[in-house]
Simulated assay, not measured.
Amino acid sequence: MAGITREEVAHLGKLARLELSPEELDHFAGQLDDIIGAVARVAEVAGEDVPPTSHPLPLTNVMRPDTVRPGLTAQEALAAAPAQEQQRFKVPQILGED
């Protein structure tokens, strides 16, 4: 496989509206060539007999049974509230609206 050339890096830089120095062109050409080589090696490993997966291990949800439990009454919930109005929590006005 041919390596990434300075001209190709310059073209990519132009498309991305990046001004690259000659040193950067050489540096990025080497880095991009390494990245493309790594992706090619991964593509070689993934065979048609390997199904695509999102996780290497099977995942199962651990759920507790959904059981009905008694909750707080309105009076119990509001008992520790600093302020209440019409059986609701009263909070400070923040938007300046009525």
Results as ranks from 00 to 15, higher is better:
Ala2Arg: 14
Ala2Pro: 15
Ala2Leu: 12
Glu7Ile: 03
Glu7Ala: 11
Glu8Gln: 02
Glu8Ser: 00
Val9Met: 01
Ala10His: 04
His11Arg: 07
Leu12Glu: 03
Leu12Cys: 09
Gly13Ser: 00
Gly13Ala: 01
Lys14Ile: 08
Leu20Trp: 00
Asp26Trp: 13
Phe28Trp: 06
Ala29Gln: 02
Gly30Gln: 05
Leu32Pro: 02
Asp33Thr: 01
Asp33Glu: 05
Ile36Tyr: 11
Ile36Leu: 09
Gly37Leu: 00
Ala38Cys: 14
Arg41Leu: 03
Ala43Arg: 03
Val45Leu: 11
Ala46Asp: 08
Gly47Arg: 04
Gly47Thr: 02
Gly47Phe: 09
Glu48Ala: 09
Ser54Asp: 13
Ser54Val: 08
His55Gln: 07
Pro56Cys: 07
Pro56Ala: 07
Pro58Tyr: 11
Leu59Met: 11
Thr60Cys: 15
Thr60Phe: 12
Asn61Thr: 11
Asn61Val: 15
Pro65His: 07
Asp66Ala: 09
Val68Lys: 09
Leu72Ser: 11
Thr73Lys: 00
Gln75Cys: 03
Ala79Val: 02
Ala80Tyr: 13
Gln84His: 08
Gln84Leu: 05
Arg88Glu: 06
Arg88Thr: 05
Phe89Asn: 04
Phe89Ile: 05
Phe89Trp: 06
Lys90Leu: 12
Val91Gly: 08
Ile94Arg: 11
